[in-house]
Structures are given as structure tokens and as C-alpha cells.
Design a protein around this nucleic acid. Structure first.
Lengths: 173, 173
DNA sequence: GATAACTCCTACTACAATAATCGGAGTTAG
DNA sequence: CTAACTCCGATTATTGTAGTAGGAGTTATC
């Protein structure tokens, strides 16, 4: 149930990049590592998954680094977790019955599927912007509380883009 | 994200016991193991957690075994998972800020807390009875779909007891 | 065109957790 | 008294996690 370090670091890395990528210049892992006190060498690994999920783009060479492949408001927490941890499934049999010999008569499977769906829904309601926002936390929380309280059906889980601005600068630590 | 074998086995074990405990006699691990093809020796370990969470009660001696500490409709999936895996927290800092040095300025924490709450909600909406029910799946599913689709606020997550009857007998495999 | 600061790629390693297995002591119905 | 259980404490093999290490390739700057 617990998120792996890998998952948490990936989220924090994305947050650091989101916060610092305001000036247009790519954010280096060294910067991100310092800002979020994360082991830089480890980030190098995590970044691979985030790139191939097309959440980050890399720029080689001096003054290189990474920038978000799309606005923070359009990157869902679920996207990041999926990139870091693989498919967001509570059990394999939910998607592919062949994974389980017992699939035809196992009642658990259907309940698993429903739970799994709901978890993905929550994960897709929150975006990187929610994580990266600084200040105005109180205001932010009200909005977030709303999100968390109102079950918004099962349908489209794409995040509605808003246009808050990400602040940069002041050392996070 | 994936449920551990430990967690899945615990659920299946509970299902086996629920299904077989109709006659009043306790269900032995040997029976449960055969019915759910689970390694009996391993179940002996899992049962420890389930007992101390007061979900199962043990009866020693010949014809001994285990029975549910309360009706299946009152045992939530979340209860079982918690007994099997420990506290249902996605990260430790959600409940205890001291877990994290960065707690005061970390925005993630609040979002984590909201996600965590929602996950616990889903897990507490489904009961052992939902998992153990045999036949009438179609009908069951409609009810379950309803559950999964309608976000029912954040309030009380105690399962509403219903009074379906658990079937017993016919070998599950 | 050297150099500094990066990304990028591939191993490697230490440690912890997971998924069991095993032997045997204690309990109880027949 | 014995067969069928629970109960208890070790032990083990395998995998996964978190993190390090070394170095090749890329690019702005002096």
C-alpha cells in the first residue's frame, strides 16, 4: 500500500522541475536534487521512466536539464506514478483474466476491478500543479477538499486545465 | 501499488472461511487451503494478523479451525487489508508529520492525505460479503457498480449491513 | 579547443521484504 | 491414545528496492 521511495522521489522531482522551470531554462538534476534533497545519482534513474512516459524532455550539454513535456496542470499524479511504478493495477487479473487461473469463478476479481477503477480516478483528479503550488495553500485546500469530497461520477478523468502560475526562486529548503 | 500475495491470500482465506462457515463448525486451514488453492503452511502465518485484528477466532484441537468474529457483511475489505499489511497509508507523513523533515513546507503531503482518504473510503465500502457472494453476480454487480460510481461523500464509511445468505458446499475448484 | 556542467547509459551492490517451508509443542473430539 | 487440528518460533530462497559507480557523449563559454 505504501508508495515506494521511487514513486515519492519521482513526484518530488517533478515538483522541483515544475517550480523551477518558470524562466524557460531547463532544470538540472543537480538543482532538483539540492532543492528537494534527493540523491542526484538516483534521480538519473527515475528520470528515464519519466522521459519515456513523455512527461519530461531532456536537454543535453552544459546548462542542460529537464523541462516538463506539457503544462503542470495537464500532468496528472496518476501519470507520474504510472511512469515510476508501472501500470496502476492493484492486481494483474483485473485487466487480463489470463493472469489468474481462478478468473472465471473468482468473485474477488470484480471487486478488485471496481476498487482499482476508483483508485485510478482519484489519482487522475490531482495534477502536478496541485503538488507544486506554493503559498495560497488555504485557498488551494478548499478547492482540493471539494475534489476529494465530491465523487464526480466514473466518466472522464482528464484534469480540467486551470491557469495558476507556478512560482519560482526562493530555495525550498 | 500492487497488492502483495500476503494481502490477496488473506482476502481469499477470509472468503473461503466465510463461504464454508455456514454450518456453524469452524473451518480448518486445510479446508481453506484446498478450496482456494493456497499454501496451508503460509496461511498459518497470515491467520495471526487476522486474529489479532479480531476478524477471525480460532478453535484448537480436532475439528478445530477458524470462524469469522462477526458477520461477513460487517467485515470491510479495508479491515482485512489492514490486518494483512499494516496501516493503510500511502505515505507515513500523512498521519504523523514528524515522519518527514519536509512536512512544514511540503505541498505533496496534503494531496497525499486527500488521496489516502479516498482510497480508504473505497476499501471500506466493500465488505467480505461482496467478495464471498456466489451466484447472482449480475445482480450483485449492479449494486456494486452503483457503489463504485456514486461518490458518497466523505462521511461515515461503515458498511451498511445487509442480510444476504452465504452459500456453502460445492467445491470451489 | 579546452573545460566545465550537464545528460545519458550500463553495471553493480547492499539490504530489506516477500513468500514461503519446517519442526514440533499444545489442544481436543472420538 | 491418536488423529486432526491450532499455535509458535526459526530458517531460507528469491526478489525487489534504494542507491552507487564509472564513464561516454553533448553543448555553452572563455
Amino acid at each position: 500500500m505504501k508508495l515506494s521511495t521511487r514513486a515519492r522521489y519521482s513526484l518530488r522531482l517533478m515538483v522541483e522541475i515544475a517550480r523551477r522551470s518558470d524562466g524557460g531554462a531547463p532544470v538540472s538534476l543537480a538543482q532538483a536534487a539540492r532543492g528537494g534533497d534527493l540523491p542526484r545519482r538516483y534521480l538519473e534513474q527515475l528520470v528515464i521512466g519519466l522521459k519515456s512516459a513523455d512527461l519530461l524532455r531532456g536537454v543535453s550539454g552544459k546548462d542542460g536539464g529537464y523541462y516538463l513535456a506539457r503544462p503542470a496542470a495537464e500532468i496528472r499524479v496518476g501519470d507520474i506514478l504510472e511512469a515510476a511504478m508501472g501500470p496502476l493495477r492493484i492486481v494483474d487479473c483485473v485487466e487480463d483474466p489470463r493472469e489468474c487461473l481462478r478468473a472465471d469463478f473468482c468473485q474477488c476479481r470484480q471487486v478488485y476491478a471496481l476498487i482499482n477503477r476508483r483508485i485510478r480516478e482519484v489519482l487522475n483528479e490531482f495534477t502536478l500543479e496541485d503538488l507544486a503550488r506554493k503559498g495560497g495553500l488555504q485557498r488551494g485546500m478548499e478547492r482540493l477538499e471539494g475534489k476529494a469530497a465530491v465523487g464526480k461520477g466514473s466518466g472522464g478523468t482528464a484534469p480540467r486545465g486551470r491557469s495558476g502560475r507556478t512560482v519560482q526562486g526562493e530555495e525550498t529548503r
